[in-house]
Design a binder for these strands. Sequence first.
DNA 1: GCAAGGTC
Length: 858
Amino acid sequence: MAPKVLMVAEKPSIALSIASVLSGAQMSTRRGSTEVHEFDAMFLGSRAHYKVTSVIGHVFSVDFPAAFQDWTTTNPSDLFQAPILKKETNPKAHICRHLSQEARGCTHLVLWLDCDREGENICFEVIECTGFHASDGRRIYRARFSSVTEKDILKAMNSLAEPNRDEALSVDARQEIDLKVGVAFTRFQTSYFNGKYGNLDARVISYGPCQTPTLGFCVDRYLQITMFKPEKFWMLHPYIMYKGYELKLEWERSRLFDADVSAMFRNRIIEDGIMKVVRVSEKLESKARPSGLNTVNLLKVASSALGFGPQLTMQLAERLYTQGFISYPRTESTAYPSSFDFKGALGALVHNPVFGAYAQKLLTESYNKPRAGTDAGDHPPITPMRSASEDSLGNDAWKLYQYICQHFLGTLSPDCKYRRIKVEFESGGEQFQCVGQLATVKGFTSIMPWLAISEKNLPEFAVGEKIEISKVELDEGNTSPPDYLSESELISLMEKHGIGTDASISVHINNICERNYVQVQAGRRLAPTPLGISLIRGYQCIDSDLCLPDIRSFIEHQITLVAKGQADHSMVVQHVLEQFRRKFSYFVKQIDNMDALFEAQFSPLSDSGRLLSKCGKCLRYMKYISTQPARLYCGTCEEVYYVPQKGTVKLYKELTCPLDNFELLLCSMPGPEGKSFPLCPYCFNCPPFEGIDTFFGAPKTGDSTKLGKGVGMPCFLCPHTTCPHSVIAQGVCACPECSGTLVLDPVSAPKWRLYCNMCNCLVSLPEGAHRISTTQDKCPECDSTIIEVDFNKKTTPLKDGATLHKGCILCDELLHSLVEMKHGRSFSRHGRRGRGRGRGRGRGSTKQQDPKMSFRDF
DNA sequence: GCAAGGTC
């Protein structure tokens, strides 16, 4: 039987390239979770059937089992010893199922994952999904390729090897360490600080071995700025007039920090009055053309020159790549493979309206190979692949594409050459100079004009000439602090210290912005926030290792031992985790030191917020704190009561809850169709009745036993039998859409309406009525609550100008004609579900007395 | 709600 070969690449684009090369572009392609390319060709000396497909990056990622997911019941320090499990990174993509299906009947598996440790790790994920075993006679091969070119693909096919388990295990080790350390610290500090300070606006206070040192760089610069003491300095600048030029000469001492001494030198020059030419020198200098463009350099230029953040840059680059305008945008390499087709790449640009002429010139007049760079063996430098115009790309993408083109054309251009003339002078025993520059070959700077040298003409001087000094300036200046760290500088620092990868650097920077640790200022400079500063200063004071970049290099170094087979995977993981566990427990013990910084920076809960409503226990006013998580704080009882996180709250007519005496709040959800409803702060946090099956704000799919902060029972879910705000009093009839109850919105005048206490169903009542209220009566026909409408005198539909009308909104002809369903299906007593389900209230029914009972159909 | 690493 002919061998069947399954080949798997790391991404769809590479599967396509491999299949095209090996089939000579004679393959059939079908869709699946990812595309599968099929063809027949030779494999290891015999005719074989090939299937080439791909994963989409990692198939699995690590996490804790469910038992360790609950923040309230898991002690973060237990996470270091907790088991971990791998689950599908993207379950919806069904990559595992896809691989398992495609592997069926295959005799050989060839792994074409990227040739780095992550790729090696994904190899074993793929093996697991395919179900290939060393024992079952089916062979597993690893293809090692240094670029996705025909030459390298064929070379890899001819030297198939085995996947490297040690390298894969080193990635497993990193994953486990990153997970446990990051999650333990994050949960601990979030739980400790959250809710402790009124104006500390943070949902989660995260820690991570990449994001925290990244923040550390920004705070370091901030601290340099705050510690900076400016110093005065003086610079001596003599001027001469010569052959029609006025020249400002530079002092050899540049600047002095002593006013008297500087003045003394000035007097000497003035006394002398003559500048002697002591030396004239000329040098041919050259500025090298760039090497190929890699991700990090693209991110830096985009941030500093185009004003694009790394996140946006990568999004734009990704789009340019998938549309075929540029090559793969995530690469470390600045060197092109020797076989790279520069002619082809230039040829693709010759018809470009902006760069065409330049590309054509390079093609016809010869081009240089790019300056030597480093080949990381991943992907070639970022290169334009197809011509594009501003109209077809849109503004931002065009700017990025334009830079990529300019850079690429620059790499193939000549170096920039220029003459540098230096004239040295002497006067009063002091040395001065002036410098002129003149480009002889513009080279790459003609396509990258911002890198051009600044040209300056000098008249010709002869050694020994004496020139009268026209004036002497003593310029006073102040040393100035550095500016906030620019994003581009941060990227350089991250690269230098090995924080993140080409693909993840942008994620870490985005992270510290989103977590409110830094803010991006004009010119893309990163200003740390009070939270970011307090965190880093806290780590520095407890254990500075926690925020230094060495923490990443330490982990990298340890897992490299695993990758090289010099240490056992589980020994290394255990060893590293034990060190972090100790650091963690010391951190927990010393958290007061960090808290002292928070206390200085943030105001305690009791100082912030405004008085809103009375506590039912002490009858004093509680403070409303609007920053997330929104909550009430009773300073006397030292209790926190969460309120709904969306919408606004205000005092509800100083009404109180009959159960606990707390003053009621009126909560209004945002938007014109947002519900308004009363809620008792105490009941909302501690629902007094069981049997309420859907708490307000609870996760849609989650079970209600695990409630989030403040997720609970507003009055519209409360089955209290006599309180005028409960669903018993305010409920009108069953919701036609769900199992909920339509409740009167008590503050919806003049656009009176009912809303469902479970879903989004909305019913509008007669508009313009003075008052609409529920009564204690129910409809004898359908059991809905009878409502009372007080119509407006001018618009009343009643005979003889009467305004008062009672009735059932389903069975009363007049009322039913005036109500309208705004969201939902039908709303009719004749409808499938309208009649007979009205159990909105039912005070008369003894069955309703037990609040544990459902008030739905039974 | 949490990390960092792939990739879309």
